[in-house]
């Protein structure tokens, strides 16, 4: 599967990344190389193998429904670039 410049632009847009024309060329090539490298796996016959979603043989890890203390509002907002009345303040999101 070949990666096109359009794919790179689309992925960049989804990831909110600004990439220059030069970078687009580079990433098109590099992402293509990566996919081609992984393509080796296609040589394997996986007909009767069910897909693997998790690599560790662990399942059903639960916690019980118990409340523990949350952070203080000061701690919560400590890394907030901007705040107002206990809220995080962000650029306006128009619906």
């Amino acid at each position: 599967m070949d990666i096109t410049k359009k794919d790179v632009e689309y992925i960049a847009k989804l990831a909110r990344l600004e990439v220059s024309e030069h970078e687009k060329e580079t990433f098109t090539e590099q992402l293509g190389d990566i996919l081609n490298y992984v393509k080796v796996l296609e040589e394997l016959n996986t007909e009767d193998i069910s897909p693997t979603f998790h690599v560790f043989p662990v399942k059903n890890v639960f916690r019980s429904d118990q409340i523990k203390e949350s952070l203080s509002p000061e701690e919560v907002l400590q890394n907030a670039p901007d705040q107002e009345n206990g809220f995080f303040k962000v650029p306006r999101v128009i619906e």
Binding site: I67, K68, S70, P73, G86
Partner: peptide
């Protein structure tokens, strides 16, 4: 539930903003 789905913060509705929040 009393607590959230993946952490132990309470699920109470209508409290002051950002008071039931953890990492």
């Amino acid at each position: 539930t009393k607590s959230k789905i993946f952490c132990s913060c309470p699920t109470t509705f209508g409290d002051a903003p950002n008071t039931h929040v953890c990492p």
